[in-house]
């Protein structure tokens, strides 16, 4: 028996399958430049989804999400250079673990008293510190960036996959990102996710149901940071270069824009938002100087016309057209 309270796993898995199939087929049909954009998009989708796990699901506003993306990236690059024999999957997992631990330490201090705009400002300050650190710390390449990050060879026991060959790393990114998105989906729809949603709606009320509000907020912050750190780790070998710009506040604004554009209250919101953003950027890439203006105006128009983002707007339209039928059914019952 399916309850209306059950998670929409069949529907979402089907949607994900179609998207992944399309992405995996990209290199067969699309030019190299577009494949690069799409690979980056896959990581940005993870970036946006993990941010919205904090915002849309839990009600935490972070202005410094990019710092965890950057920390994961530099962590992996440093580990891969220092321990060339380490299995790359361990390196990626290590970056995630490092992000989680760091988020817990920061969260224990920052989330204690400061919420709302204070937490936002604290995370913004944190991202500035990370940015300054990366720009001035010599072993990490300072302003020139961390160069020569290799795409590793995956030792799978019976055989090896050289991610440096052909489109292998692209395919790897698509699959790994899918896994990370699945993690976010799972947290969101789990019992913990429902508690997080309750906290987002009314933390005081949630506490009076026996929910540990501070602990769950910390958990959401840690998971989001860990997931985005892994995405950052994957980003290094994709570009084969990391500059301090990955920690810049303008990058921290990205997941916010993705979520607002796509819709914060749906799982798919940031996916739609990131894709829409990428399409706009790709479509206007030759219009030097105008690109920002066009993207900015479209963003503004969407947010003003549909406060719930693209998916929120579609949902409202669907509801409006379904409304008369539904009332009729309700009265019969």
């Amino acid at each position: 028996m399916r309850s209306p309270l059950s998670a929409p796993i069949a529907r979402d898995a089907a949607i994900a399958l179609v998207i992944v199939a399309v992405l995996l087929a990209m290199p067969l049909v699309a030019p190299k430049g577009l494949v690069f954009v799409v690979g980056t998009l896959a990581l940005h989708i993870v970036f946006g989804l993990s941010w919205n796990l904090m915002f849309g699901q839990t009600g935490l506003v972070s202005f410094g999400h990019a710092s965890f993306f950057a920390i994961g990236g530099y962590f992996y690059a440093l580990v891969a250079r220092s321990f060339p024999d380490l299995h790359p999957l361990l390196g990626f997992a290590g970056a995630g673990a490092f992000g989680v631990v760091l988020a817990i330490v920061i969260g224990l201090i920052a989330l204690r008293r400061s919420l709302g705009v204070y937490f936002a400002i604290l995370t913004l300050a944190l991202s500035q510190i990370v940015y300054l650190f990366l720009s001035s710390f010599t072993p990490l390449g300072r302003e020139d960036g961390f160069t020569g990050i290799r795409r590793p060879v995956l030792d799978m026991g019976l055989f090896e996959i050289d991610l440096a060959r052909g489109d292998n790393y692209y395919l790897f990114i698509v699959l790994f990102s899918t896994l990370l998105c699945a993690v976010v989906w799972w947290v969101r729809h789990s019992q913990t996710g429902r508690a997080l949603r309750a906290i987002q709606q009314d933390p005081e009320r949630a506490a009076f149901l026996g929910i540990n509000v501070a602990g769950n907020r910390l958990l959401a912050f840690a998971i989001a940071s860990g997931v985005t750190a892994v995405a950052g780790a994957l980003y290094g070998p994709w570009l084969q270069l990391l500059t301090p710009d990955v920690a810049h506040w303008t990058l921290s604004a990205r997941p916010i824009l993705y979520s607002l554009l796509g819709g914060v209250s749906s799982f798919w919101g940031p996916v739609v938002g990131a894709a829409g953003f990428a399409i706009l950027e790709y479509g206007t890439r030759t219009l030097h100087g105008f690109s920002e203006i066009i993207i900015g105006s479209i963003l503004l128009a969407v947010v003003l016309l549909f406060p719930g983002g693209i998916l929120g707007g579609l949902d409202a339209l669907r509801r409006r057209s379904a409304a008369p039928a539904r009332t009729a059914k309700e009265t019969v019952r």
């Binding site: 209306p4 429902r194 949603r197 009314d202 009320r205 949630a206 149901l209």
Partner: peptide, 21 residues
């Protein structure tokens, strides 16, 4: 005080799951 965007059943589910830890 209830969780306004959740259905009545989802509101109670949150409470049940909090109790059923």
């Amino acid at each position: 005080r209830v969780f306004k965007d959740l259905s009545a059943a989802a509101n109670v589910l949150v409470a049940v799951e909090a109790a059923f830890r």
